[in-house]
């Protein structure tokens, strides 16, 4: 592979990893800190992505579209949480996946607004021009960058900021209360923690973060298709979470790079097999990682065993 092309390829893989890192940081807050097994996380990313896309295709400026997308995802989290957060963990998991599928099927069917299976074209709006301006500026000072680099940098800065926010929240009474809810709901309630309200806040913030991942997904892929938001996206997110370690933010970063490498980075290597077969084997490996982790090290690489609660 031509080295410059290879550079672009790695920029692509790492941007994807960064979007996954943001996505899974939201999941970590819900699953790791609060004990909410949310299998419909991708739905909130879809809401962020489509809100962003619809805003930009309708002439809303980017600086307004981003907060709107994040707020829409957070609002959707509250809306889903109010009726469902009282359910037991396994029922909650199935309900969230069903809600996500309802949303996806709706997006698919409402072609008039969302483009349906034809895709929402030009969803990234003025981003491309902005990106070119940035590249031109760097060229002006003698630096020739791959066209994917600005987004790569932006995504990872955002991921680190989100991570820093979560670490900061980790030092506040807020996350201590969340963790108390996770450890023992009855005891937390008896100590005067409004359990339901804390769960709802966690789901809202987690969804907002997923919405932010959606914002970058829109800039990254420029055309949005409903099949980008199938439940498998969430499950790959869970693979990242499980590999890195439930409860560990640093683990999320490592996990998303490793899993993104397996999902798209291995395209770089030459296997003596058809592309389809290689694609299938990639997901076999991801499945085996999930299985192996759950069987032998459920707390993941960086997680703590005593913080793991998988009893439902």
């Amino acid at each position: 592979m031509d080295p410059l092309l290879a550079l672009g390829f790695w920029a692509f893989v790492l941007t994807f990893a960064g979007i996954y890192a943001i996505f899974v940081l939201g999941l970590q807050l819900e699953v790791g800190d609060t004990g909410l097994i949310n299998f419909g996380h991708v739905a909130f990313m879809a809401i962020g992505a489509y809100t962003m896309g619809l805003c930009l295709t309708n002439g809303v400026p980017i600086w307004l579209a981003v907060p709107l997308a994040v707020l829409a995802a957070a609002a959707a989290g509250v809306l889903l949480g109010i009726p469902t957060l009282r359910l037991r963990a396994d029922y909650f998991a199935i309900t969230t996946i069903a809600a996500g599928e309802i949303l996806r099927i709706t997006i698919q069917n409402e072609q008039g607004t969302t483009g349906g299976t034809q895709g929402l074209r030009g969803a990234s709006g003025p981003w491309r021009d902005f990106n070119n301006d940035v590249l031109d500026w760097f060229e002006g000072i003698g630096l020739e960058l791959d066209r994917r680099v600005p987004l790569l940098v932006l995504v990872w800065i955002t991921a680190l900021l989100v991570g820093a926010l979560l670490v900061y929240l980790g030092r506040t009474p807020w996350r201590r209360a969340l963790r108390a809810v996770r450890e023992n709901e009855e005891a937390a309630a008896a100590s005067g923690i409004p359990v339901f309200s804390y769960k709802l806040q966690s789901l809202a913030l987690g969804s907002a973060i997923a919405g932010l991942a959606g914002v970058f997904y829109t800039l990254f892929s420029t055309t949005l298709f409903p099949e980008n938001f199938e439940p498998i996206f969430t499950f790959v997110g869970f693979a990242i979470l499980i590999l890195g370690g439930i409860g560990s933010y640093f683990g999320v970063v490592v996990g998303s790079i490793v899993i993104s490498f397996i999902v798209s980075g291995t395209r770089f290597l030459d296997f003596p097999l058809d592309a389809d077969k290689v694609a299938a084997l990639r997901f076999v490996v991801i499945g085996l990682i999930i299985m192996g982790m759950m069987a032998f090290r459920p707390q993941g690489i960086f997680g703590k065993k005593e913080e793991l609660h998988l009893d439902a």
Binding site: F238, G287, I290, M291, M294, P298, L310, A312
Partner: peptide
């Protein structure tokens, strides 16, 4: 193994 642990394992499977 807990319920969620088995559930996640079945997703890998």
């Amino acid at each position: 193994a807990g319920v969620m642990q088995l559930l996640l394992l079945s997703i890998g499977l």
